[in-house]
Computed example of a mutant assay.
Amino acid sequence: MDGIITLENVCWRRSGEEILKDINWTVNTGEHWAILGLNGSGKTSLLNIVTGYNYPTSGRVKVLDAEFGKSSLPDMRKKIGYVSSSLGRFSQTMNRETAENIIVSGKYASFGLYQEITDADYEKADDILNELRLSYLKGKTYNLMSQGEQRRILIGRALMAGPELLILDEPCSGLDVLAREDVLDMSEEVAGRSSHLLYVTHHIEEITNAITHVLLVRDGKIVAEGPKNEVLTDELLSDTYKIPVKVHWEGGRPWMSIIK
């Protein structure tokens, strides 16, 4: 595999409006990226291109050796794990499922179990629970978990299929500080596995040591992309967030304050 993601001159239009404009972006093997931008900046549209749910109006896309127009996108998606706060819409289905059943369901990309499950499936789910320090949740149903525990179990579910690319789309949305730090700790552990990580957020303080590169998006265009220490500057972030900001680093993580 010569690269994880390659987007060349990608544009995407919807109802005559250009949502993504001349996107050129490459994710190489061994890199873990954060994607930053305001609401409406194009982050979700970009993710939909990467996962093959939106097809570019123009340009070339290649993800995990699958070139759009020449490869099977359903097969490509099987190699991608996806976690988002929006998955809460499936909570009614998951509420009575145990932690291990939810993790096993990730093998089949389903919410709920509708296939015959093997002992090997449950053994792998146990391994994931142990590796992610979630074994204390075994046997506990989803409706009895805290919001932070639910989010972490969904990350475990995404790992069940052994994805080559794991997308965490605002995984800390709605979480308190303690739950957020638990999810961030887990994201660092995930980055140490074989998966490549895309971490999407509004908040630069969620960029942990595991993240190597950052993509800044504003109004459907790339403001900057590259190693995080080069991209997370006062000037570039002020441009991205459309307000003067100042960045400082603490504990290996960036933090941002508004300049009044």
Score class of each variant (00 low, 15 high):
Met76Leu: 08
Ile19Gly: 00
Val27Asn: 03
Lys221Asn: 13
Tyr53Met: 13
Arg133Gly: 14
Glu206Val: 09
Arg218Tyr: 08
Ala99Gln: 10
Ile167Met: 05
Glu225Trp: 00
Thr118Glu: 02
Val231Ala: 03
Ala34Asn: 05
Thr208Gly: 00
Ile211Tyr: 03
Gly69Arg: 11
Ile207Ser: 05
Ser84Glu: 13
Val200Ser: 04
Leu159Ser: 05
Ala125Thr: 06
Lys228Pro: 03
Ile167Thr: 01
Pro227Ile: 01
Ala210Leu: 05
Glu31Arg: 01
Gly251Thr: 00
Trp12Lys: 14
Glu8Leu: 10
Val183Ala: 07
Ser238Thr: 14
Lys221Thr: 13
Gly139Gln: 04
Val50Cys: 05
Glu100Thr: 02
Asp185Ala: 14
Ser173His: 12
Ala179Gln: 07
Glu8Pro: 09
Lys21Met: 03
Ile19Glu: 02
Gly139Leu: 07
Pro227Ser: 06
Ser135Gln: 15
Asp127Ile: 00
Tyr55Arg: 12
Ser110Tyr: 07
Trp12Gln: 14
Asn130Ser: 12
Leu113Phe: 07
Pro244Gly: 10
Ile243Met: 13
Lys138Ile: 04
Gly251Phe: 06
Arg14Thr: 11
Thr51Ser: 05
Leu236Trp: 03
Gly148Ala: 08
Tyr136Ile: 04
Gly162Glu: 13
Met76Thr: 00
Thr26Leu: 12
Tyr199Pro: 03
Asp121Pro: 00
Thr51Gly: 01
Ile204Ser: 00
Gly16Cys: 06
Ser71Leu: 07
Ser15Gly: 11
Ala120Phe: 04
Lys246Cys: 05
Ser41His: 08
Ile117His: 04
Lys246Ser: 11
Ala120Pro: 06
Ala224Glu: 10
Glu97Asp: 07
Gln150Cys: 02
Ala34Met: 04
Thr240Gln: 01
Asn39Leu: 05
Glu100Leu: 02
Ser41Arg: 10
Ile222Leu: 07
Ile155Ser: 11
Leu137Val: 13
Gly174Glu: 11
Ser194Phe: 00
Val83Leu: 09
Gly174Thr: 13
Glu164Ile: 00
Val83Gln: 04
Gly16Leu: 10
Ser173Trp: 11
Val245Lys: 04
Leu237Arg: 01
His196Gln: 10
Gly226Pro: 02
Asp239Glu: 15
Ser173Val: 15
Asp169Val: 04
Leu165Gly: 08
Gln115Trp: 06
Gly69Thr: 15
Phe90Trp: 12
Asp182Gly: 10
Ser58Arg: 15
Glu189Trp: 11
Ala99Gly: 13
Gly3Pro: 03
Ile222Trp: 00
Asp75Gln: 14
Arg96Lys: 09
Thr233Asn: 03
Phe68Ala: 10
Lys140Asp: 09
Arg13Ala: 11
Gly106Leu: 07
Thr93Phe: 09
Ala179Glu: 13
Ala125Lys: 09
Gly226Gln: 03
Asn24Phe: 09
Ile167Gln: 02
Lys43Thr: 05
Lys62Arg: 14
Tyr82Gln: 08
Gly252Ala: 08
Gly16Asn: 10
Asn9His: 14
Glu17Met: 14
Leu237Met: 12
Pro227Thr: 12
Ala66His: 15
Leu38Met: 11
Arg89Met: 15
Glu149Gly: 07
Lys70Gln: 13
Trp249Phe: 13
Lys221Ala: 14
Leu216Ala: 13
Gly88Trp: 04
Ser194Ile: 14
Asn209His: 11
Ile4Ser: 06
Lys43Asn: 03
Ser105Trp: 06
Ile80Pro: 06
Leu20Thr: 08
Ser45Gly: 05
Glu17Tyr: 08
